[in-house]
């Protein structure tokens, strides 16, 4: 990702310090920025998860699964 695609945001220092400690102690993230991006993406992707199948489509899928012996 290019730097120009990034924006700055402000969060409470106390929260930042807590996040910094979390990153240092838990591992898995290289910076607070990476942690924040991960958490935001998790929350937002749940919102964006728009795939829902209509009842009719679901029934069609189930019919095929039954015909093939899966259910």
């Amino acid at each position: 990702m290019r730097m120009s695609d990034k924006v700055q945001i402000s969060i409470a220092r106390e929260l930042y310090e807590k996040a910094k400690r979390f990153v240092e102690e838990q591992g898995g993230f290289s910076s607070v920025e990476e942690l924040v991006e991960f958490l935001l993406r998790e929350v937002l992707s749940e919102e964006e998860s728009s795939y829902t199948m209509s009842k009719e489509d679901e029934e069609k899928v189930k019919e095929r699964l039954r015909a093939l012996g899966y259910i």
Partner: peptide, 14 residues
């Protein structure tokens, strides 16, 4: 051959 929308329904059904 099953596609993701089919396995998702199948896993839920089970």
């Amino acid at each position: 051959r099953l596609w993701p929308k089919e396995t998702r329904v199948l896993f839920e059904a089970r």
